[in-house]
Simulated scan of single mutants.
Amino acid sequence: MDLVKRYKDDVACIIVTPFHHPAFGDQVLPAPSFFADLRRICDENGIVLALDDVRAGFRLSMHGSHAYFGFSPDLTCFSKAIANGYTLSACLGKAALKAAASRVFFTGSFFGGAVEMAAALATLDELERRDAIAHMMKMGTMLQDGLKELARARGLEVVVSGPPTIPYMRFANETNFRRMQRFSGEAARRGVIFHPHHNWFMMEAHKEEDIRQALDVADKCFEVVKKEFGG
Rank of each mutant, 00 (worst) to 15 (best):
N199G: 08
G85W: 02
L127H: 03
E116G: 14
G64N: 00
I166D: 02
R170C: 07
M137C: 11
F229D: 09
H63Q: 13
V224C: 05
A31T: 10
A56N: 04
D52Q: 02
A214S: 08
Q27P: 10
A218E: 03
E126L: 15
E223S: 13
F106E: 03
A205R: 07
H20N: 15
E186V: 13
D10P: 13
F34A: 11
C42N: 01
A188S: 13
Q213A: 15
R6T: 10
K94Y: 02
A118M: 12
P32S: 00
A36L: 00
F229A: 09
C42Y: 00
H66G: 06
P30N: 12
L124R: 13
A83S: 15
L88H: 02
H20V: 14
R190G: 02
A218K: 08
H21L: 13
T175L: 12
H206Q: 06
A99K: 04
F229L: 05
G162A: 09
V158H: 03
S109V: 05
A122N: 15
S161Q: 01
S102K: 08
T165H: 01
D125K: 15
Q213P: 01
I82F: 10
K220F: 01
V48P: 00
R212N: 12
A122F: 13
L49V: 01
A90D: 00
G25E: 04
R189V: 07
F110H: 14
T123S: 09
K8N: 07
V159W: 02
K226C: 08
Y68M: 04
T123I: 05
R190E: 11
I47Q: 06
A122L: 14
P73G: 01
T165V: 03
D74M: 03
L51S: 07
H135W: 06
S33E: 15
K207W: 04
R190N: 12
F24D: 11
M1E: 14
I41E: 08
V159D: 13
R189Q: 11
S109L: 13
V225P: 00
